[in-house]
Amino acid sequence: MLFKRLLDIFRTKPNSQTKKGEITCTECGLVYDNTLGFIKREANECPDCQYIKILTDKSFDEMSDGLRVIRTIRGETAIKAAKDMGLKLLELRAEVSDEFKIKYKKIKHRITGEIITIGDFRADSRYSWKYKTLVDWTSKNPSKFFSPYAAYVIPKDLKKGELVLINDVITNHVSGRWNQGDVYRLSKSEATWTGEYFNIDVSSYAIGDIIG
């Protein structure tokens, strides 16, 4: 039944039928078989396929550190597939905040030609005379989402107040700030299900804790 639903998704694209029992995703060449599930025939697969795989992967680790793991899916295709499968979803808009940034500088060894990227101002002076600057200190936002559509798959028996683990957080939270200006996005976190949304416990996986 699951196969048939996913088949319908892939069938929207022309020439997706290969041989009997197999469907090829025209986006990434992923071949689907009704007895074996997804078979990766090419090195890369499109994000749509990756997130559909999250929905159907039987080896998905349901528990980690004693907590139930919540699946995150991204992209309209995976969300549509999840709805077709009758799964309960918490859909959220996925937009990376401009706040997040990491800095870097790219330098090249004057003799060997080796190119390295450094991220710490303190490392700069160590390389000063041996290296030529290719890209001077600049910042970039390392977080990018391929789609503005994302959702958490809510287990039907998830109880209000249950603590869970989210490996791919959709909303924007600062995971840590470095005094050199870098601001990191929280990608993984523990969270509590309120019955309507997840209350993200930023401290659970934040960087920048000092204990003593």
Partner: peptide
């Protein structure tokens, strides 16, 4: 007593 300080908490100012 052991304390935990997170650099992101609102009631902390970072000094150098």
């Amino acid at each position: 007593a052991c304390l935990r300080v997170n650099l992101n908490q609102e009631n902390i100012k970072i000094i150098h």
